[in-house]
């Protein structure tokens, strides 16, 4: 299903970095809206219907909240619409508020996609390429967190069954939960010693470590990376040449509609919709395969009859 997430972590990392950096730092409504829609499309592919509903319930009020906050505090701009408590509420400030909201929510959605796609092992893989030993330490830490949680629950239960937690007094409860934390520290030390020994037993102290991963750099990874880099260079070229320059204050500038600017916008639009297209293509392919499988199945059934 998640075709995009099966790409090589390095390619994914470059992709997310390019999208996030451009979405955050290019101050242009078209770019920001593109990033938002790309984020919505991709997020929609990754989440279930229920999650989508709860996302909508979260992001729309947030959008409104951010949009109205800016004109309340910023009074720059040349076109006052009305006055509130003696302060001008300007058109520019309202528009800028909306664009900030779009940018913030776009970035949030992309970060959400990032956390869904770049799981801890992908991140550790990339990290381990650069710093192998700290990567192992991080992996060990990731393993410790759930272990610690479970042990904490066990200790609490055992203590509760001795009548420590059920006491009515709030102070007592606080004291005993602090005690549980202190005992957990002792417990994790004890465990850490054992883990350290197990690491040494398997040659952790040897020199010349390598870093293993399940990932292979495939042709599609190369293609995606090449496309990504080409598009992002083109977009940066556009930014550098001022083709997508835009400002809100003191007056909203016009959006440049020269052929070159349009090309830059299209390039950016393609960039942010890459994951969406990959997912869609994968779904179509999958449906196609599925119907093939069932067709083969019916054929076989007929033959057997």
């Amino acid at each position: 299903m998640k075709a995009f997430s099966s790409m090589h972590p390095f390619v994914l990392m470059i992709y997310f970095l390019s999208v996030l950096i451009t979405a955050m730092f290019i101050n242009n409504p078209i770019i920001q809206f593109s990033a938002l829609f790309g984020g919505i499309a991709f997020c929609g592919m990754l989440t279930t219907a229920k999650q989508k509903l709860s996302d909508i319930a979260f992001y729309i009020p947030l959008l409104i909240l951010i949009s109205i906050t800016n004109p309340l505090f910023s009074h720059n701009g040349e076109t006052p619409l009305f006055f509130m408590n003696g302060n001008a509420v300007t058109l520019e400030a309202i528009v800028y508020g909306v664009f900030i909201a779009v940018m913030v929510i776009g970035v949030m959605l992309w970060c959400k996609c990032y956390s869904l796609i770049m799981t801890s092992d992908k991140f550790l893989y990339l990290f381990g390429r650069v710093l192998p030993k700290p990567a192992i330490v991080m992996s060990t830490a990731l393993r410790y967190i759930p272990m610690l949680k479970r042990q904490s629950a066990k200790v609490k239960k055992a203590q509760k069954a001795m009548g420590f937690y059920t006491s009515e007094s709030y102070f007592d409860r606080l004291r005993f939960s602090l005690r549980v934390y202190s005992v957990l520290i002792g417990w994790s030390m004890e465990n850490a010693v054992e883990t350290a020994k197990a690491m040494n037993a398997r040659g952790f102290k040897l020199k010349n470590h390598t870093s293993y991963s399940n990932y292979k750099f495939k042709t599609v990874d190369f293609l995606l990376l090449a496309l990504n880099i080409a598009l992002i260079i083109f977009v940066f070229w556009g930014v550098g040449s001022g083709a997508v320059a835009f400002s809100y204050y003191p007056q909203i500038t016009h959006i440049d509609t020269s052929a070159f600017s349009l090309a830059v916008y299209s390039a950016y639009l393609i960039l942010v919709f890459i994951p969406f297209f990959i997912e869609i293509q994968e779904r179509i392919k999958w449906n196609c395969y599925r119907s093939k499988i069932s067709a083969l199945h019916t054929q076989r059934m007929k033959k057997e009859q």
Partner: peptide, 17 residues
């Protein structure tokens, strides 16, 4: 030592280079 099964299997071999 590690958080994933595959990594645990590979851990010793990584150490051996």
């Amino acid at each position: 030592v590690t958080d994933k099964v595959w990594h645990e299997l590979a851990f010793g071999l990584e150490n051996m280079g």
